[in-house]
C-alpha cells in the first residue's frame, strides 16, 4: 500500500437496491484520504445510513466497489475480517442502545480484546489509559449502560472503538441527543483524538454547525445520490446546488447578523420507490426548468475541488465559478 496516495476508503460507483424498486444508493463515488475529516449531510431517505452500512460491510452493494487501502471490501472481509474491523470502526447514533444492556462497562470494553484475541494485560492497561484520556472515572467500569448519561455512553462507545486502535472512524450523528454543553466537550475530544492518533473520520450529521466546525470536506446527499461535494468552507460560503442552499438557509442561528434568507422548500423528500424523473430534486427545486424534469444531471467538477449534480448550479449562475 503506497500510503498517502491510495485513499484509505474509496467508494466507486456504488449502488444499493432493495428488491426491484427501491434504490437506496445510486452511483455514489467518494474518496477519503488518510487523516481527512469528511462530513456527510442529508435528510432521512437520503441514503447516508445505507452508505455507512455498505462501507462497514453490514450490507452489500448491488453494483460498484468499496475499496479499503485499494483492496475491494469483499476480498478484505474474506481474507481478514477481523483485521478490517480493527482498521475501520463505527460509532452508532444511539450510544446507550449500542451497548449490550446486560453487561457491565468493564466487560463491554474488554470484549474487543477477546473477540480479536489481543493480549489481555496490555489491552487492560490500554483501557485504563483511554479511560483517563476520555475523562471517564474508573468507577464507570462497574456500571451498566442504562446507568450512564448520554455523554458517558458515547465515551464508552468511543473507548470500545479505540481499544482496537482503528485508523478510520465512521461516526453516525455523534452529537444527536446531547445537550449543547456536552456536545462541545465531545467534539473537542474527537478532534484531539484525530490529532493524537491520526484518525480518519467520516462524520454523518444533520447538525450543520457541527459539520461546518469540524470537517474539512462536506458531502451533501439527496435521495440516494451525492448532489454536492466541496471543501467545507467553500460549501458553506457559496453552496452550488439549490438543495444545499436551501438546507443551509434553514439552519436556525442565534446571531441575527448570520441569518440567511430562508429558502423554504415545498413538500418533502420523495419516497425512494417513486424517484422523480430527470433530476431527483426537480420536484422541490425553486429553479427547476424543463431540462431538469427530463435529464438527470451528472456529478461534475466545478473547480476549487467542488462537484455538483445540477444543470444550473447556483455559483455558476451567480458568476462565482
Amino acid at each position: 500500500m503506497n500510503a498517502g496516495r491510495t485513499p484509505i476508503l474509496a467508494i466507486d460507483s456504488v449502488s444499493v437496491a432493495f428488491g426491484d424498486k427501491v434504490r437506496a444508493l445510486d452511483d455514489v463515488s467518494l474518496n477519503i484520504a488518510r487523516g481527512e475529516i469528511v462530513g456527510l449531510v442529508g435528510e432521512s431517505g437520503s441514503g447516508k445510513s445505507t452508505l455507512c452500512r455498505t462501507l462497514m460491510g453490514l450490507g452489500e452493494a448491488t453494483s460498484g466497489t468499496v475499496r479499503i487501502d485499494g483492496e475491494p471490501l469483499a476480498d478484505r472481509l474474506d481474507r481478514d475480517r477481523l483485521g478490517f474491523r480493527r482498521e475501520v470502526q463505527m460509532l452508532l447514533q444511539d450510544a446507550v442502545a449500542s451497548l449490550s444492556p446486560r453487561m457491565r462497562v468493564r466487560r463491554l470494553v474488554e470484549e474487543p480484546l477477546h473477540v480479536h484475541r489481543l493480549p489481555l494485560a496490555a489491552g487492560r492497561a490500554r483501557i485504563l489509559t483511554l479511560l483517563k484520556r476520555l475523562g471517564l472515572p474508573e468507577s464507570s467500569l462497574e456500571k451498566f449502560p442504562h446507568q450512564l448519561s448520554g455523554g458517558q455512553a458515547r465515551r464508552v462507545a468511543i473507548l470500545r472503538a479505540l481499544v482496537l486502535q482503528p485508523e478510520v472512524i465512521v461516526a453516525d450523528e455523534p452529537t444527536a441527543g446531547l445537550d449543547v454543553s456536552v456536545q462541545g466537550e465531545l467534539l473537542n475530544l474527537m478532534m484531539d483524538l484525530h490529532a493524537e492518533f491520526r484518525l480518519t473520520y467520516l462524520i454523518v450529521s444533520h447538525n450543520l454547525n457541527v459539520i461546518r466546525r469540524i470537517t474539512t470536506r462536506s458531502v451533501v446527499m439527496y435521495l440516494g445520490q451525492i448532489v454536492e461535494e466541496a471543501p467545507t468552507a467553500a460549501l458553506f460560503r457559496a453552496p452550488a446546488h439549490p438543495y444545499t442552499a436551501a438546507l443551509l438557509s434553514t439552519n436556525p442561528v442565534v446571531d441575527p447578523g448570520k441569518r440567511r434568507v430562508r429558502i423554504v422548500l415545498r413538500g418533502e423528500i420523495p419516497s425512494p420507490i417513486h424517484v422523480p424523473s430527470g433530476c431527483r430534486f426537480h420536484t422541490r427545486c425553486p429553479h427547476a426548468q424543463a431540462r431538469c424534469r427530463q435529464e438527470m444531471p451528472d456529478l461534475r467538477a466545478l473547480g476549487d475541488g467542488r462537484k455538483v449534480r445540477c444543470h444550473f448550479p447556483l455559483a455558476e449562475t451567480a458568476g462565482l465559478a
Binding site: V180, S181, Q183, G184, E185, L187, N188, M191, N209, V210, R212, R213, T232, A233, F236, V253, V254, D255, K258
Partner: peptide
C-alpha cells in the same frame, strides 16, 4: 456553546 462559525480552536 452554540457553534455558528468555522473558526478553529476549541469549542
Amino acid at each position: 456553546c452554540e457553534i455558528e462559525d468555522d473558526h478553529g480552536g476549541r469549542l
